[in-house]
């Protein structure tokens, strides 16, 4: 029985797919998700990933290289995400949620309308800890302030301003630090590298995702 049809019972661990593009470090992110109570499957197989309850797109690598890990026909992925599968895209993984990127050829998943552009700053990559101005969203629950680790040369520009739920300033640039569109969440920072506060953000995302999965299962009954 596939994870998506299972009813999320209280106390059962949320079935999370951590997608592996084959390049970067997934250990810290995997451990952070596990510490927050998730049952993590690291996989490079999209059908296995989509059969889980929650999808996490990690954030290491170049845009074009990550696109190579996407199948030619993305219909199944896009449909599953649009039907309410909670998604957390981190850094590059956030950028993949958008339509296009200045960094490379090809189209992203397009589940959050907008584009990816280069950071407008003298020193690029933006490398280090930076403050996130937090909007109202469950992923920021209990965080009075959030200084998170960034390592990026590109940032997302959502078409719909209300999709942005957090902002960060880098030199004179101000960009969407986090977006939400329904069950889809993207963060430009690396919460798995942002010490205690980052792990709190991951735990918050999972708690909200679990609520959504359970509500979806209730509605389907």
């Amino acid at each position: 029985m596939s994870g998506q049809r299972e009813v999320a019972e209280r106390g059962r661990r949320l079935a999370v797919a951590l997608f592996d593009y084959g390049v970067g470090n997934l250990h810290s992110l995997g451990k952070a998700l596990e510490h927050a109570g998730a049952d993590v499957l690291v996989t490079d197989d999209w059908s296995a990933a989509l059969a889980r309850e929650v999808l996490v797109l990690p954030g290491v690598g170049a845009f074009a290289a990550a696109l190579e890990a996407l199948p030619d026909d993305r219909t199944a992925i896009v449909e599953r995400i649009r039907s309410g599968m909670p998604v957390l895209g981190i850094c590059l993984g956030m950028q993949l949620l958008f339509d296009t990127s200045e960094e490379g050829e090809g189209r992203g998943l397009g589940v959050v309308p907008g584009r990816v552009r280069r950071v407008r700053a003298g020193v690029v990559p933006q490398m280090g800890w930076n403050e996130i101005e937090m909007g109202e969203d469950p992923i920021f629950e209990g965080l009075s302030e959030l200084v998170a680790y960034y390592a990026n040369s590109y940032v997302c520009e959502p078409r719909d301003a209300e999709d942005a739920i957090g902002w960060t300033e880098c030199e004179d640039d101000r960009f969407a630090a986090a977006v939400r569109r329904g069950s889809i969440v993207g963060v430009q920072c690396h919460p798995e590298k942002s010490s205690t506060a980052g792990r709190q953000l991951i735990a918050n995302f999972l708690r909200d995702a679990e609520r959504r999965v359970r509500a979806g299962a209730e509605a389907a009954r």
Binding site: V23, G24, V60, G61, A62, A65, L92, P125, S153
Partner: peptide, 9 residues
């Protein structure tokens, strides 16, 4: 290295 994994690493 930058082409494969991104300049940030």
């Amino acid at each position: 290295g930058a082409r494969r994994y991104g300049a940030q690493c």
